[in-house]
């Protein structure tokens, strides 16, 4: 009797990923904030310092994962919010692809920046 509801099997995967990324982000975001606002004050940040941090492979990987997780969590959240507002049909498809493209661009740009920040010193 539920035939008129189209099945959307990725929904529970997205729901779960949203939670998993949330847990990851809570930890990393706290670390990020502490490091860049309390340990190093934002005003004192220079590319040299950034490069020093980014050159550590662990830090680099964490930041890239941080970026990917945050982008997924944020963009998926935005998409859910819009769906809950009742967006459906073509606008919904457009938004879905629009958001996907934006995510990919953001992640690509982020990784590119991170790579530049290593200054080629990544060990």
């Amino acid at each position: 009797m539920a035939e008129h509801y189209s099945s959307f099997s990725s929904e529970d995967t997205r729901w779960l990923l949203q939670r998993v990324t949330a847990v990851f982000l809570v930890g990393v975001l706290a670390f990020h904030f502490m490091l860049l606002h309390f340990v190093h004050h934002a005003a004192e940040i220079t590319l040299a310092g950034t490069t020093a941090r980014m050159s550590q492979p662990g830090y680099f990987v964490t930041m890239v994962l941080f970026l990917i997780a945050a982008t997924f969590h944020g963009v998926n959240g935005v998409y859910n919010a819009l769906v809950n507002q009742g967006i459906s049909g073509t606008p919904r498809t457009v938004i879905k692809y629009g958001l996907t493209i934006a995510s990919v661009l953001l992640i690509a740009q982020g990784i590119r920046v991170a790579w530049v920040m290593t200054g080629g010193n990544l060990i």
Binding site: A2, Y5, F8, D12
Partner: peptide, 14 residues
């Protein structure tokens, strides 16, 4: 479970 996890099912709960 398939019914309730369809698009208009449990995932919409906020």
């Amino acid at each position: 479970l398939e019914t309730i996890e369809a698009e208009e099912g449990v995932w919409r709960c906020q």
